[in-house]
Simulated assay, not measured.
Amino acid sequence: MRNSKIQVPVDGGGVISGTLWEPADNAHATLVIHPATATPERFYAGFAAFLAGNGIAAVTYDYRGTGGSGSPRVHRHLGMRDWMEGDVPAAAAWAAERFPGLPRLAIGHSLGGHALSLGNGTAGLTAFALLASHAGTARAVPDPVERFRVRLLLHVLGPALGAVLGYVPARRLGLGEDIPAAAMRQWGGWARLPRYFFDDPAMRARERAATVTQPVLAIGFTDDPWATPEQVDFLTSHLTAANVERRTYSPADGGVARIGHHGFLRRGVQETLWPEVVTWLSKHAQSAPR
């Protein structure tokens, strides 16, 4: 396995920085990992290396204004919609151009899965997996303490700090990487709505989700404090033209004490859960027309 840094221009301005993870021998498919909000590219390195070790060339990256893809203050105007409609298709197009003729796959983690569910970056995809992607309305968080924390961060602290600083110091708030102010405003706005961005007329989310036709593997976890099985199901219920397979794993399934919203990407489940997902992806890659 070998890896190399990449730079991908985005229509409308800016560049996303990422890494290409390649098998030692010829790849039989290519896959882009579209990240979760405020989750750095390096968090996906272990899983990307595992994919490469199984013959799949993988791309990881940071959204503009996060991690290695530029200052969140400089990119303060970028919202989540900009990431979904700009960065996700740009990364997908780069991988398609770099590996012409190979079956194309994707994994969307949380926000990355939202983008795929609305058809962003799906042109020419053979299949894709959604990882802990859900309709992220704050009122659906089951634990009252966590629900209060989410509302405090998304509706009070985050927007206020963004207005003052031009970015949100999410790292200090325990949310991951720092993000642009506009991304926090949009996140908080959608989280107030009963059906998340499906209640935002500007997104045309129901209409766009209904255009997705690829096979989809939607994965959730019993101990995820945000992406509950019900909210995952609500998101995938809008993929009316797709063949959706649902899987919900418990920590016991992974042989670990906790998985939560991010734990699938940690090496503790490398021997238990990762092979199942790679098998599903490889099966669809092998059945893709050449």
Score class of each variant (00 low, 15 high):
Met184Glu: 09
Arg208Gln: 14
Trp187Phe: 13
Asp199Ile: 09
Arg206Met: 04
Thr213Ser: 13
Ala205Asn: 12
Ala218Val: 04
Val212Trp: 09
Arg208Ser: 13
Ala183Tyr: 02
Ala202Pro: 02
Val216Asp: 08
Thr213Arg: 14
Asp200Ala: 15
Trp190Gln: 05
Ile179Trp: 00
Val216Met: 06
Arg206Ala: 15
Gln186Tyr: 03
Asp178Pro: 06
Ala202Glu: 15
Asp200Leu: 04
Asp178Leu: 04
Phe221Lys: 10
Pro180Thr: 06
Asp200Met: 04
Arg195Gln: 12
Ile179Gly: 00
Asp199Trp: 09
Phe198Pro: 10
Tyr196Trp: 15
Arg206Glu: 15
Pro180Asp: 01
Met203Phe: 07
Asp199Asn: 14
Gln214Leu: 03
Phe197His: 04
Glu207Cys: 01
Arg208His: 14
Pro201Lys: 08
Val216Gly: 03
Gln214Val: 08
Glu207Tyr: 06
Arg204Thr: 11
Ala205Gly: 11
Gln214Cys: 06
Arg192Asp: 03
Pro180Val: 09
Gly188Arg: 07
Gly220Asn: 14
Pro215Thr: 02
Pro180His: 08
Gly189Leu: 09
Gly220Asp: 13
Ala191Gln: 00
Ala209Gln: 07
Phe221Gly: 11
Pro215Ser: 00
Ala181Cys: 04
Trp190Gly: 08
Arg208Lys: 15
Glu207Val: 01
Ile179Met: 13
Pro215Val: 00
Arg192Ser: 08
Pro194Ser: 04
Ala218Gly: 09
Pro201Glu: 10
Glu177Gly: 01
Leu217His: 12
Arg206Gly: 15
Pro201Val: 08
Tyr196Ile: 08
Leu193Thr: 08
Thr213Ala: 13
Gln214Phe: 00
Gly176Leu: 03
Arg204Ser: 15
Ala209Trp: 03
Val212Glu: 07
Ala205Cys: 13
Tyr196Pro: 09
Leu193Cys: 12
Pro215Cys: 00
Arg192Glu: 14
Phe221Val: 12
Met184Phe: 03
Gln214Asn: 11
Tyr196Leu: 10
Ala218Trp: 06
Asp199Leu: 12
Met184Ser: 11
Thr213Asn: 05
Ala191Pro: 04
Gly189Trp: 07
Phe197Leu: 14
Asp200Glu: 15
Asp200Phe: 04
Met184Gly: 00
Trp190Arg: 03
Arg195Trp: 00
Val212Phe: 06
Met203Ala: 14
Arg195Tyr: 03
Trp190Phe: 10
Val216Asn: 03
Gln186Cys: 02
Ala205Ser: 14
Thr211Val: 00
Gln186Met: 07
Ile219Trp: 07
Pro201Ala: 10
Ala182Val: 00
Glu207Asp: 13
Trp190Val: 03
Met203Glu: 13
Ala205Pro: 13
Gly189Cys: 11
